[in-house]
């Protein structure tokens, strides 16, 4: 039962990442809608559980295998780190919108770190700043839908 649950979560996370890739392929504006990233933040802030580590790790392995040209394990590490950072910040500070905004900002930096390290600041800064606002809005919107008190 536990294995089935973990497998299901892995597959769902991978499907969300797949959807995120398709979504950002269509959107040629200089923003990114990172639904998988938002899902990871949710896993860190609201649904943090040690049992989620394996699905997150394997979704990263699958992501690396199918979508990334980087070495296997890089995105697993990034995903895990996003969850750790978001949970650490939400545990450390009072849950306010500013904290959530900070979480999104810092975690998005982590999430986009391969691009940040590879390209100069002019390439990614504008996109990053816009994406922070867009994804923060989506995050809050989803929070409301999920009836989670902000």
């Amino acid at each position: 039962m536990k294995i089935l649950r973990q497998t299901s979560i892995t597959l769902i996370l991978f499907l969300i990442s797949l959807l995120e890739n398709y979504l950002n392929t269509f959107i040629s504006l200089n923003i990114g809608i990172y639904i998988f990233f938002i899902a990871l933040v949710f896993l860190g802030t609201d649904f943090f559980d040690q049992s989620n580590v394996i699905p997150i790790f394997f979704s990263g392995v699958l992501y690396d295998s199918f979508f990334s040209t980087y070495y296997l394990g890089l995105y697993s590490a990034i995903f895990l780190f996003v969850v750790i950072v978001s949970n650490f910040l939400v545990s450390k500070f009072t849950k306010t919108n500013i904290v959530y905004f900070t979480i999104i900002s810092i975690c998005l930096l982590v999430y986009k770190s391969p691009i940040i390290f590879e390209f100069d600041i002019n390439y990614w800064l504008y996109n990053y700043l816009l994406s922070v606002f867009v994804n923060f809005t989506i995050y809050l919107f989803l929070k409301r839908i999920l009836r989670i008190n902000v």
Partner: peptide, 23 residues
């Protein structure tokens, strides 16, 4: 608070290991 991340750090280490092997 720190202990709850132990398993996450272990998998982070595993990810790094995978990266090294892949490299």
């Amino acid at each position: 608070g720190i202990r709850k991340y132990v398993i996450y750090f272990l998998f982070l280490f595993l990810s790094g290991l995978l990266t090294a092997v892949d490299y």
